[in-house]
């Protein structure tokens, strides 16, 4: 018998019994082996980015970072099998995007159906993580106003209220998010933020800028006809002509 390369599996769930049951079901599996487990979202992001597993069993409700938020912070794209107890919204999202998911509690048979499908995809090595990408796009589309945001800088993950954002700057496919003293790069478009951020708090003042009205100190004349917003931390943000009209309205000037 030749030595078979086993696929690396990681389990993410905050409840020990829930992890254990997957561990038990994975025993004697010839194609897959468990390499590690994580009990919260932060730990999971670190481990997944570091160990680069092929397949992740991912719980959705976890402290601090949900399964969905976690996905956005991954540098590698493993196959994902979602594991959840009761979440009507999520189940609908999975079905629409053909992502594997299992509902707690589950039996060995259901578990192996999901595992089999994922392994098949890994073996054929095509469309890797494609359905997961679609799911991220879908959940970005359907969620209402963004309340909090998961950001990463090096190995440090921060989850914060969007009201702490000072302004957002376009950087090609990415956006740079500025807070009082920090900045974070995020893989998301300006359009996404414009749609998802509370319109009473945030305003797109310029093609490349979205500003948090709460943190504006003043508006200054920059050159003839152009203006800039001075933030409370003295940062300067460009204002376009239409942006200025709307800005005046919002600040009731």
């Amino acid at each position: 018998m030749s030595e078979v390369q086993k696929f690396k599996v990681l389990i993410v769930d905050d409840e020990a019994p829930a992890r254990n049951i997957i561990k038990v079901f994975l025993q004697n599996e010839t194609d897959a082996e468990l390499i590690d487990e994580a009990s919260d979202g932060f730990e999971a992001v670190k481990k997944i980015n570091h160990l680069k597993p092929d397949l992740v069993f991912l719980d959705i409700q976890m402290p601090k970072l949900t399964g969905f938020e976690l996905l956005e912070l991954l540098e590698t794209k493993p196959e994902i099998i979602f594991v959840t107890a009761y979440d009507q919204y999520a189940v609908k999202a999975f079905e629409l995007n053909a992502v594997d998911y299992i509902l707690k509690p589950f039996n060995k048979e259901r578990f192996h159906t999901a595992l089999g499908k994922a392994l098949e995809r890994l073996k054929s090595d095509t469309k890797k993580g494609e359905s997961t990408e679609k799911l991220i796009a879908y959940s970005r589309q359907t969620t209402e106003n963004l309340q909090r945001i998961a950001l990463k800088k090096g190995n440090q993950i921060t989850v914060m209220d969007v009201e702490n954002i000072f302004y957002i700057e376009a950087q090609d496919d990415y956006t740079m998010i500025y807070t009082q003293n920090e900045r974070y790069l995020k893989h998301a478009t300006m359009q996404y933020f414009e749609d998802k951020l509370d319109k009473d708090m945030f305003l797109r003042t310029h093609r490349s800028y979205i500003v948090n009205l709460k943190h504006i100190e003043k508006i200054e004349l920059f050159e003839k006809d152009t203006r800039v917003v001075v933030m409370k931390n003295k940062a300067l943000v460009k204002v376009g002509r239409t942006g200025y009209t709307v800005l005046k309205e919002k600040l009731s000037l």
Binding site: E15, A18, I21, V24, A85, Y86, K104, P105, F106
Partner: peptide, 10 residues
């Protein structure tokens, strides 16, 4: 309910 049943299943 479902989370409890899941842990009991373990």
């Amino acid at each position: 309910l479902f989370n409890s049943l899941n842990s009991i299943s373990y």
